[in-house]
């Protein structure tokens, strides 16, 4: 699918750090106009008719590029996409003209019930075909390509017969979508399933990465006392994830990078420090091919 250029998008997302926009920070952002590259919002929080969320996002959008991140489309569900929800997503995109639109490789709706989590899918040809149909439908409806995010997972399926990377590559080839590489998710999933996060990043299709996410996780233990990490977006980015991020940038080159902090949201200053740290990695001289040679 060729890239559909939208001439109304006056400010593409720069290859800098952005921050997930939270209502707690609306006023401070408008008053102080922090030097952050862009903001990202969860589409579902702007599907109401009016009021404060739209008031503030409209004002902030005038000053910053925007990315829209869906959390409820349930692209990985076997069931058909919810057309009302897809229409609502289109409405948010039409209204705010985001430079990037992304969703998750996950499912969350089943039999008319919304399970408010990003649930895992088995990696096989059947699931892949279903996900591709759904992504085609999303891209046709929105009239633009979307980015698909790699998940953090806690279990695997016996029914999986391909790796996550094979699964994602096939989707990119068949739908022309881009990828949102969540580096924290890579660390979480690699730890939880005992594989090498660096090797995963090395083998990731770098040329299709349109955005990176960085967030916090919590430490736990699995059923057999093994290390288990939980992707909770409730703390600072861990040092080990910063290291993996620097490696990722050396592979992909500079890519717009989001600081995601959705629970126990801290003061703006804390998010700004995280964004500054990401910007420092992004602006380092590019050593991208050194590791490979």
């Amino acid at each position: 699918m060729s890239r559909i250029e939208d001439t109304r998008v006056s400010s593409p997302i720069p290859a800098r750090a952005g921050v997930g926009l939270k209502p707690e920070h609306y006023s401070e952002i408008l008053e102080t106009r922090p030097a952050v590259g862009w903001f990202e919002v969860h589409a579902e929080n702007y599907m109401g008719a009016g009021g404060a969320p739209h008031h503030y996002l409209t004002a902030i959008r005038e000053h910053y590029p925007l990315s829209v991140h869906g959390v409820g489309l349930s692209i990985g569900a076997d069931a058909a996409l919810d057309l009302n929800h897809l229409a609502a997503l289109k409405q948010v995109c039409d209204r705010y003209e985001p430079s990037l639109v992304s969703e998750h490789l996950a499912w969350s709706t089943h039999d008319g019930v919304y399970l408010n989590d990003l649930l895992p899918v088995p990696y096989n040809a059947e699931t892949q075909a279903r996900v591709c149909e759904h992504i085609d439908q999303v891209q046709e409806t929105l009239g633009r390509p979307m980015l698909l995010e790699n998940p953090s997972t806690y279990v695997r399926f016996e029914g999986s017969d391909m790796s996550e990377l094979e699964f994602l590559r096939g989707i990119v080839e068949r739908t022309g979508c881009g990828l949102l590489l969540d580096v924290n998710n890579v660390h979480v999933s690699a730890t939880n399933h005992a594989y090498d996060a660096v090797a995963y990043i090395d083998a990731f299709p770098h040329e299709h990465v349109g955005e990176i996410h960085l967030g916090g996780h919590a430490d736990d233990e699995g059923d057999d006392g093994e290390p288990l990490l939980i992707d909770d977006h409730g703390s600072a980015v861990a040092d080990i994830v910063w290291g993996l991020y620097a490696h990722t940038i050396s592979c992909c080159g500079p890519v717009p990078t989001l600081i995601e902090w959705d629970n126990d949201v801290p003061e703006w200053r804390v998010l700004m420090e995280e964004a500054t740290q990401a910007d420092a990695v992004l602006s380092k001289p590019v050593l991208r091919h050194v590791a490979a040679e």
Binding site: G222, D224, E226
Partner: peptide, 11 residues
């Protein structure tokens, strides 16, 4: 499953 067992209840 997990890499260590079937039906990991805690996970």
């Amino acid at each position: 499953v997990s890499h260590l067992r079937d039906k990991p209840r805690k996970r």
